[in-house]
């Protein structure tokens, strides 16, 4: 198994791990958003969906995949950020971006914001379900250990401070996702001009869909449209 360790230790290997786990987290974010769109179809659908997700085998399988991806994604990134700092111990007095973009250079800032978003989101809507845990929520509802997903979500996002937090957090997520999605295509070896153009379009569409969907949900709750 040494070859896996050497792979992980190389910068390209670490990057590939960050890219693959990034891809998985992107998938998770996308499906999570699509699931949440059920807020528009009513409490019944959404709560049934919530109950399905709370089946132990689904719940723990999902949690394992997401947690492993996140741990690898974050450890990999930390390794890379440190390697990057080591590679240039003395910085420039002047440095002017030539092609890099705001979102490409702010990955290491948008990443932690997304992490905070993730943790707060768990505290808002997940931790309350466990006995003895307190939810960061105005009025957390559950029946038999299964949270009432629709009510919890709509109530939370109807409060302007939380709605604002979710909108801002989603914009940061958008910054992260756009560069991440396009970048991971290249890291995973996509090199043809046509394929790269396609990857860029796909990255934009995915980012817009996820961020747009999430913000739409937030606004709908805030304006009490659902």
């Amino acid at each position: 198994m040494n070859f896996l360790l050497s792979f992980w230790r190389s910068t390209v290997g670490t990057k590939v791990v960050v890219a693959v786990t990034g891809l998985m987290l992107l998938g998770f974010t996308l499906f999570h958003m699509i699931g949440n769109l059920q807020v528009f179809t009513g409490a019944e659908d959404m709560n049934a969906y919530g109950a399905f997700l709370h089946k132990p085998e689904v719940l723990w399988a999902g949690r394992c995949v997401v947690a492993t991806s996140m741990i690898l994604h974050i450890t990999g990134t930390v390794r890379l950020v440190r390697a990057s700092a080591d590679a240039r111990p003395q910085g420039y007095a002047k440095w002017k971006a030539q092609a890099s973009t705001f979102y490409s250079r702010t990955m290491k800032f948008s990443g932690p914001i997304v992490l905070i978003y993730f943790v707060v989101h768990l505290l808002n809507l997940t931790t309350g379900a466990e006995p003895g845990h307190i939810a960061l929520h105005p009025n957390y509802l559950q029946t038999d250990g299964v949270p009432k997903a629709f009510e919890n979500l709509t109530l939370l996002l109807a409060t302007p401070p939380w709605a604002t937090f979710y909108i801002v957090a989603n914009l940061a997520l958008g910054l992260h996702l756009f560069h991440g999605a396009y970048s991971l295509a290249k890291t995973l070896g996509l090199s043809g001009a046509r394929q790269l153009r396609l990857a860029r379009v796909l990255a934009s569409v995915l980012t817009a869909t996820i961020v747009g969907g999430n913000i739409a949900i937030t606004l709908a709750c805030l304006l009490r449209l659902v």
Binding site: T11, V12, T14, K15, L80, A83, S84, D86, A87, R88, A97, Q98, A99, S100, T101, S104, R105, M107, H179, Y182, S183, K186, T187
Partner: peptide, 12 residues
Amino acid sequence: GFGHCTNHSDCE
């Protein structure tokens, strides 16, 4: 001791 690539394209 070189760093890694994060696809900024400043090099190109």
